[in-house]
Design a binder for these strands. Structure first.
Lengths: 367, 367
DNA sequence: CTGAAAGCGCTAACAA
DNA sequence: TTGTTAGCGCTTTCAG
C-alpha cells in the first residue's frame, strides 16, 4: 500500500464510526465532549478504539478544523542551541515556558538560524502566535513571522509594526544610569564592549556610522544611553572607543578587552553591554595582572548569576519576567485591539568591579 | 462575521486562484514547486498574493495533507521551566535542538507537568515524532506518547516498548566504577543521596522496598551499580542508608546531607546520584565545618560545569551528545525496522572531593 | 505547463 | 442523545 511518509495510521475516526455503526460525531464527542453522549456508548466507543488501535483524533486534522494549534512559536535570532547556553536567553525561555505551561500551550522552537535565509521553517510552524526574541529588525525570519496572520509579541525590539505587542526594558535609561555611576566615580576615559550590531560579521572597533546603522535595537539603545550619560559630563562620544564582537561569549569578551586596552591603554573603565562580555573583560584583566577595580573598572549588563558571583557591577534586568510577560501577552485572550506594551524595571547593581580611577584617587588624596 | 477563534485569514489559496483565474494547483505550485510553472506566471501569483494579503499556504492544512508536521515533540518529566534550570536537562536540550535545527525541524516542548494527569497536550501535539527524556516508566504522558502512531525515542529509560529507539548511558556500570573508586580508597561506611524514585513525593530515607519499586530507571540503575560495587568488598546494601529527595536542587542536596549525616555520623563518604545533590552536600559540609575530602568524601554524577569548578569527583556523561543522538535517531530516515539503541560512554572524573577516610589514614600511618 | 477531481481526518451547526 | 451535512485549506495524481 502506498502509505503515508511516516507510519500507517491504523484507524481513523470515520472507520471507527463505521465499525461501530455510529456517526462520526458520536465518536468525536466520545473524545471531546463526554457529556454529549451516554456513558455506556462512550465506553463502547473507547473500547472499540482500543481494540482497533485508534490513537484518538489526529491533532493536525483537529487543528485544521478548530483553527488552533495549541502551541506558540518562538523565534530566536541565534542558532537554536545557543538559546540553551546563554544565561539570559535561558532565563527568558524559562519564563516563557512557564507561561505556556500554565496555559496548557506547547512551545515550538522554530529552527531559524541566522545563517540560512530560508524562512520556510516559519511558514511551516503550526502555531497560534509567535514570540520574537531579540532579532534584527531586518531579519527575514522576523519579516516572515509578521506575514503570518497570527498574533505576535516581540521582546527587546521597538514597536515596529501594527498590532504587534511588545515587552522589554528601557535599555537606554538603564544604561544612562550606569553611565552616571561610572562618571560619578570620576571616569572620563571610557571604553566600550558591545555585542553584534548588524547582520554581517564584524569584530573590532565599531565606527559611529556602524553604530548608527545597528539593526539590533537593544545594542543601539544601550550605546545611546551611555552616550547620553557621557555627554552629561562633557565627554564626546567620538572619543569613546567601541569594540564589537559578533560572537557572544566570555572568550569573545576577553579578546575584545585585550584589543580595546591595547589600542587605548589610557582607559580607566570598560563598560560592556552584557555581563558575558564583562566576564570576559574581567578574565582578561586578571590574566594581564590588572587589579579590578583598582586599576580598571568593568561593568556589565543583564545581571546573570555568574556575574553576581563575580561581584560584577551591572544593570539587572528581569529576564524571566520578560519571558513570562511575553507569553502572557500572547496567550491572554483579551481585546487585541491596540498594541500593548510592557516595560519592566531594571536595577543598577553596584558590585566590586567599579571604583574611582587611580588618577582621581591621586587627585583627591592630594587634598 | 462568525470568524475563527484567532484572527481572520484574509485569503486562501482557493480565493487567490479564483481571483487570478487559475487553478489551485498553479497557486500551490507557485509556492512549493517553482519549476512546475513559468516564471512570469509565478511572479503574477506571488504579486497577487502580496496584494491580497495571502500569507502563503496554511501550515496546518498543509500538514494534514502531507502528513508531516515538521517538528518533533519533547516530553519531559518535569515542569517545562525546570528544563531550563537544570544543567543536565539544558545540555540535553542543546544537543537535541542542534539535531533538529540541522534537519530543519522544529522542537515542540510539550507542556506535560507531572502534576497534571491531563494528557491532552500529548494528543494535541502536531509532531512527527517524540523524544521522551527521563520520565517515569508509568507516566501517563509517556503512555499517551506510545499510543501515538509516530516514531519515538526514549532517553535514560529501558527499552521498554516495541519499536521504540533508545539512547542513554550505562548508568549501572558507571556507578559501579564510582563505587570501586570509593571502596578502593578504603571507604566502607557509605551513605547515599538520590533523586526521586517514584511518583509520590517522598523526602527522607528510602527503604529497600521503595528502591526496588523505583520507577525512574536511571536512579534504579545508579543505585544498583553502587550496590554491586559495595558488595564486591563485602558491604551489604542493607547497611547503606539511602536518602531520597523529590526536588532536584542544591538546596535539597544540602538538606538531605544534613539529614543523612545526622542519622549516620559514622559515614565517611557520601555518594550522590547527581552533581546537583553532591554540590548541596558539599555546601552542607562547608557550613558544618567538615573538611572535604579529609573528613568526608563526596561524589556526584553527571559532570555539570559547576561541579567541575568545585573539583567534584564524579561520573561525566555526554549530555549534549545524548540530546544530539536522540534527535538524530528520530530524524534519521532509515529503515525503522528493529529498535535501535545508542549507549554513550561515561568517564570517571576523580576530583578533589574524594580521598581515603581518616581511619584508613590512621591505619596506614601506623606502619 | 495547467486544470479537474478527490480527498487528508476531523468538528460544528443544525436537525431529527 | 445521535446523525446529517458541510466544509477547514491544502496537495496530488492524472488528464489535457
Amino acid at each position: 500500500m502506498s502509505g503515508p511518509p511516516n507510519i500507517r495510521r491504523p484507524a481513523t475516526l470515520a472507520s471507527l464510526a463505521a465499525e461501530l455503526g455510529v456517526s462520526r460525531t458520536t465518536v468525536s464527542n466520545a473524545y471531546n465532549r463526554p457529556d454529549q453522549l451516554s456513558a455506556p456508548l462512550r465506553a463502547r466507543v473507547l473500547e472499540a478504539a482500543r481494540r482497533l488501535g485508534y490513537p484518538g483524533p489526529d491533532p493536525v486534522a483537529r487543528s485544521l478544523r478548530t483553527r488552533r494549534a495549541g502551541a506558540v512559536g518562538l523565534l530566536l535570532t541565534e542558532a537554536l542551541s545557543y538559546a540553551f547556553r546563554d544565561p539570559v536567553a535561558t532565563g527568558f525561555l524559562e519564563g516563557l515556558a512557564l507561561a505556556c505551561e500554565r496555559a496548557g500551550q506547547g512551545l515550538l522552537l522554530v529552527p531559524a538560524s541566522p545563517e540560512h535565509e530560508d524562512v520556510t521553517a516559519v511558514h511551516q510552524a503550526g502555531v497560534d502566535g509567535f514570540v520574537v526574541y531579540s532579532v534584527r529588525e531586518d531579519d527575514p525570519h522576523f519579516l516572515a513571522v509578521l506575514q503570518r496572520p497570527v498574533p505576535t509579541v516581540v521582546c527587546d525590539q521597538p514597536v515596529g509594526v501594527e498590532g504587534v505587542d511588545r515587552v522589554g526594558v528601557d535599555d537606554r535609561a538603564a544604561m544612562l544610569g550606569m553611565a552616571r555611576h561610572v562618571t560619578a566615580l570620576g571616569h572620563r576615559r571610557v571604553g566600550v564592549l558591545c555585542m553584534r550590531l548588524g547582520a554581517q560579521r564584524s569584530d573590532g572597533p565599531a565606527s559611529e556610522a556602524r553604530q548608527a546603522a545597528a539593526t539590533y535595537p537593544v545594542q543601539r539603545d544601550r550605546l545611546a544611553g551611555l552616550r547620553d550619560g557621557l555627554a552629561e559630563v562633557g565627554v564626546s562620544w567620538s572619543e569613546v572607543p567601541v569594540h564589537e564582537r559578533f560572537e557572544h561569549s566570555v572568550d569573545a569578551g576577553e579578546a575584545a578587552a585585550a584589543e580595546l586596552l591595547t589600542a587605548h591603554p589610557e582607559i580607566t573603565a570598560i563598560v560592556c553591554t552584557s555581563d558575558i562580555l564583562a566576564l570576559g573583560a574581567l578574565r582578561y584583566a586578571v590574566q594581564r595582572g590588572l587589579a579590578v577595580p583598582d586599576d580598571l573598572t568593568i561593568t556589565g549588563f543583564d545581571g546573570v548569576p555568574e556575574g553576581g558571583r563575580a561581584g560584577l557591577t551591572t544593570v539587572r534586568q528581569p529576564v524571566r519576567e520578560k519571558g513570562r510577560a511575553a507569553g502572557e501577552l500572547l496567550l491572554e485572550r483579551g481585546d487585541r485591539n491596540r498594541p500593548r506594551q510592557v516595560i519592566l524595571p531594571t536595577e543598577l547593581v553596584i558590585g566590586t568591579t567599579s571604583r574611582e580611577p587611580r588618577v582621581a584617587q591621586r587627585f583627591f588624596s592630594g587634598w
